[in-house]
Amino acid sequence: MPTPHPGGAPGEPRVALVTCTELPELEDDDRLVFGPLAALGIRAEAVVWDAPGVDWTAYRSAVLRSPWDYATRRDEFVAWAATVPVLANPADIVEWNTDKRYLEALTASGVPTVPTTWVRPGEGWTAPLDGEYVIKPAVGAGSVDTGRYDCADEEHRRLAAAHVARLSTAGRVTMVQPYLADVDTAGETALMFFATPDGLGFSHAIRKGPMLTGPDYGVEGLYRTEKITARIPSDVERTVAERVLAAVPGGPERLLYARVDLIPGPDGSPVLVELELTEPSLFLGYADGAAERLAQAIALRLG
Rank of each mutant, 00 (worst) to 15 (best):
P6S: 06
P10R: 07
P13C: 12
L17H: 01
C20A: 14
E22V: 13
P24A: 05
V33M: 02
P36F: 00
A44L: 06
P52W: 03
V54T: 15
V54A: 04
R74V: 10
D75R: 15
E76F: 12
V78H: 02
V78N: 00
A88I: 02
E95Y: 08
Y102W: 09
A108W: 05
V114E: 01
D130I: 00
K136D: 07
A138D: 01
A141S: 13
V144A: 06
T146V: 14
D150W: 05
D153Q: 10
D153W: 05
L159Y: 05
A162W: 07
A170Y: 02
M175E: 14
M175A: 15
D184L: 15
A186G: 04
M192L: 15
D198A: 15
G199V: 02
S203V: 07
R207I: 11
G209Q: 10
G209T: 01
D216H: 10
G218W: 08
Y223N: 11
Y223K: 13
E226L: 15
R238W: 06
R238F: 12
R238D: 07
R243G: 09
V248P: 01
P249M: 11
P252L: 00
E253K: 10
L256R: 05
A258G: 02
V260A: 09
P264Y: 07
P264A: 14
P266Q: 12
L275T: 03
F283G: 08
A287S: 06
A290I: 09
A290D: 10
